[in-house]
Nucleic acid binder design. Structure first.
Length: 452
RNA sequence: GUGUGAUUAGCUCAGCUGGUUAGAGCGCCUGACUGUGGCUCAGGAGGUCGGGGGUUCAAGUCCCCUAUCGCACCCCA
């Protein structure tokens, strides 16, 4: 009987070819993080449900994968309706907050950590969105200094630059700026989040779409007109700041917001973040409730895939776990989307990582032992080597095998070579072939590898 | 949770208003090339058309049910 072979919806397998790309991107990211002094952290796939819920806003709680209680507890729970007590992590920020709260006596602050692990979301699959995907977070915990926020942006820029992503732009905004804007537009506090959610859609539905949707939601014309005036600012950070200044400088909250934004931008300049890579985008709001300060998101023009990084400052989240306010700022790099962009734009060169460098062909059953010996020597010398695992296949098959697996060199040791104490070494990329003394193989190969 | 489209060979798909033995490209296997991959050429294998029911002389094609996958909305990486 045949078992059905479907994957759970919204999940993926990563075959070796795909893994090579993923590992390459991950390596570049990790190296860059460490260049800035961040250290790795891992946390469990699942957490107690009370740790996860209530941190992201009501909407998101529904999207947490819940794990049912087990055994007797489950029977008891059927009466109360609380069937789950654990959940798969929804992001990496909340687990970080939990770790910091639990270890705050031991950690050295500011605590700079990065974390690259899968997260799970119980939503319907869509283009570029999965129910299981890898998130990659960097955060700085324990300082309110805006230099930390700026460092996160500098790091984001550095990673994307190193990966060779063209045309990305890091959009910045500040929650306090948004609050002051809402205040200046006479929007009451209780409609602030609703306003944020709507204006945040600007890249998707355009600013005109935003005005329309605000009107549909019952925002009055006067409020919309004020928002229009304020939000229709150019992208250049300093110009945008000048544009918004007259609207906000009379408000106390506005003054604070302007001062902090100015400081933030000036740090970015000092850290050499290229000016054309950043925008002050006043309609950027981001969905998550817990942001309190600067917020940011990176977009690429092609392909249109949504944001490839996103983050911000969240000074109150960790306090929810330990009662003591611990400020933090960080970002999440959408590794999956970054890979998708790189694939789409063909930015991956020939990555043959994961394949062996040499295939030792087996000429015939009689010479198999010699091939095995050669392979063992190569491996001992640190050369990634495959030996053909069947002894009765034609050489043509074996060369085709090496070609398909992108193994660049094939060594043949047939009866002629063995009797003369040599091997034939062929480079599949150039087609060049030469006879090498049996004792010289490793030296010959190492010389070639060094030249590549 | 709400809409919507699809399902035919290992993969990507064609198959017009129902009409005999269901096709193509790629991939795979064999050979030309009995010690050498990519290119070319010649052959070959591979499908109960997702599953079930119905209409009809006749169903891959029309109708109903079901399963699965995808896309859009909400929200987000």
């Amino acid at each position: 009987m045949k078992i059905s072979v479907h994957r759970a919806p919204g999940t993926r397998d990563f075959l070796p070819e795909e893994m090579a790309l993923r590992r390459y991107v991950r390596k570049v990211i990790e190296e860059t993080f460490e260049l800035y002094g961040f250290q790795p952290l891992e946390t469990p796939a699942f957490e107690r449900l009370d740790v996860l819920t209530g941190k992201y806003g009501e909407e998101a709680d529904r999207l947490i994968f819940k794990i049912m209680k087990r055994g007797e507890e489950l029977e008891a729970a059927k009466l109360s309706g609380d069937l789950a007590d654990l959940g798969l992590r929804y992001d990496l920020t909340v687990p970080l907050a939990r770790v910091v709260a639990m270890n705050r006596g031991e950690l050295t602050f500011p605590f700079k950590r990065y974390q690259i692990q899968p997260v799970w979301r119980a939503e319907r699959q869509q283009k570029g969105r999965y129910r299981e995907f890898v998130q990659c977070d960097v955060d700085i915990v324990g300082t309110t200094s805006l230099a930390a926020d700026a460092e996160i942006i500098a790091l984001t820029d550095h990673v994307l630059h190193r990966l060779g992503i063209p045309g990305y732009r890091i959009h910045l905004n500040h929650r306090k700026l948004l609050q002051a804007i809402a205040q200046a537009a006479s929007i009451p506090d209780e409609r602030f989040l609703e306003m944020c959610v709507t204006i945040d859609k600007a890249d998707k539905i355009g600013l005109n779409g935003v005005w329309e949707e605000l009107a549909n939601k019952g925002f009055i014309t006067e409020q919309i007109v004020r928002l229009k005036e304020m939000l229709s600012a150019p992208h250049d950070p300093n110009v945008a700041l000048q544009h918004i200044q007259p609207f906000l400088e009379k408000l106390e909250s506005g003054q604070i917001a302007l001062r902090e934004t100015t400081a933030f931008l000036s740090h970015l300049q000092d850290m050499n973040v290229p000016r054309e890579r950043v925008s002050l985008t006043l309609h950027l709001a981001r969905g998550l409730d817990y942001y309190t300060g600067p917020i940011f998101e990176t977009l690429v023009e092609t392909p249109r895939i949504g944001s490839i990084t996103g983050g911000g400052r969240y000074d109150n989240l960790i306090g929810m776990f330990c009662g003591e306010a611990i400020p933090a700022v960080g970002t999440s790099l959408g590794i999956e989307r970054i890979i998708e962009v790189m694939r789409e734009l063909k930015l991956f060169g020939e990555i043959s990582e994961g394949s062996a460098r040499v295939l030792v062909a087996v000429f015939s059953p009689e010479t198999e032992n010699e091939a095995l010996k050669i392979a063992a020597e190569l491996r001992r010398a640190g050369v990634p080597t495959e030996v053909f695992l069947e002894s009765n296949k034609k050489l043509g098959k074996q060369f085709a095998y090496a070609d398909k697996k992108r193994i660049p060199y094939v060594i043949v040791a047939g009866p002629d070579e063995i009797s003369q104490g040599v091997v034939t070494l062929k480079n599949l990329q150039t087609g060049e072939q030469k006879v090498v003394d049996r004792a010289q193989i490793i030296e010959e190969l190492n010389q070639r590898f060094r030249l590549e």
